[in-house]
Design a protein around this nucleic acid. Structure first.
Lengths: 209, 209
DNA sequence: GTCTATAACTAGATAGAC
DNA sequence: GTCTATCTAGTTATAGAC
């Protein structure tokens, strides 16, 4: 009888993809060699070219997949909320969760824009603008509805995304704090600030919390 | 008569240093070639080795100089203040000013830790910890004196530094906003948060500002 | 202090066997 | 789909002339 093996759980192409993200993060795109990548993926150098046409295509595939997922899933995350403040909370939670779960891919997507060919760069920058616009729109809606006080939405969204993205550069799953604890603290920080009383800092009446 | 030319305003070594920071930022350490660096500095490839013993030494020199300056000058910046809240304000202003003024050097120092040899890495990581500790200490003092409300100083200082450092990745001197305007806005954001009223968000009594 | 020439090596990519 | 072998070009670093 012919033994029918199940199809592989992950394709070789998927393994190369994942190992490339890990290696590009560790050594950078230029600092990573195709032979080392192949070795980590369990094949010889030449075999990589059966799955990808070039090293550049591997990088672009990682970034394009990451940005698509980010855009799609942040929209899903906020779809269930109506209040801007709740949308922002959900968007931040998702952003941090994804940046720590798939940290190799998101790190590479953030750090290796400079390694992209001209056409690929245009595509990825466009997607990144799209993603950032989602955050800006939530903030604009929050201001319009009187739920948020943001003098400069463009600056505030950049500050927010950069502080949250930064988590992936030091977060380790072995640590004592969970991702969701960290996310909650960042949300509190961004919403409330560090002043003893915000009202006092902003020149208003002091309030004991 | 023998014409006595003045000494060069900047030494060739200083030119190589500056061009290396620019090139490493643009293409990454691995992606930058010694020949291109030499060309930008106005010499041939081999001549660089008269000033630096290796490409690695150039990178380390940039990072070591940047971290020393950062540590020294942030301490000068806060020395004139007594209140923690004012120390933090000055420290943030300095951090942002330096990261936008010498953005090539600071960017490389942040992004190329992975390109350092083991010994060089230990040295730079130690200096970076020292720098971050200065911010943590200000926050701890602020909490102890009742001027700041920070549940987790370690997380808050990371969030702060990452959001401020990020400015150097998009800031352009031609832009409409000055560095000091941006710094003031980031300080306001970090101190006050984005909530319409912090008290309301934190569960306390709402205050009209 | 900068040059040219070159050593010693490694890179990405391709061709064709199995 | 993976292998081996190889091409071409580019890499850091050194040696010695000027």
């Amino acid at each position: 009888m012919k033994s029918t093996l199940p199809p592989p759980v992950v394709s070789r192409k998927a393994i190369i993809f994942k190992e490339a993200a890990r290696l590009f993060r560790e050594k950078g795109y230029s600092g990573s060699t195709l032979r080392e990548l192949a070795g980590k993926a369990g094949v010889k150098g030449g075999s990589v070219y059966h799955h990808f046409s070039s090293k550049q295509e591997i990088l672009f595939t990682i970034m394009e997949h990451t940005m698509s997922t980010l855009i799609m899933r942040v929209q899903e995350a906020i779809a269930t909320e109506t209040k801007p403040i709740d949308k922002l909370r959900k968007a931040i939670q998702f952003h941090i969760a994804y940046h720590t779960a798939d940290s190799d891919e998101t790190f590479v997507t953030d750090a290796e824009l400079r390694s992209l060919d001209a056409d690929n760069l245009t595509a990825i920058v466009g997607m990144r603008d799209h993603y950032e616009r989602i955050f800006r729109q939530i903030m604009e809606e929050g201001v319009a509805r009187g739920e948020m006080q943001i003098g400069n939405v463009r600056l505030a969204s950049k500050a927010l995304l950069q502080m949250c993205t930064g988590i992936s550069s030091w977060y380790r799953p072995e640590g004592e704090k969970s991702i969701s604890d960290i996310a909650d603290y960042y949300i509190e920080l961004f919403f409330r600030g560090i002043s003893r009383t915000s009202a006092a800092e902003a020149g208003g009446r002091a309030v004991e919390l």
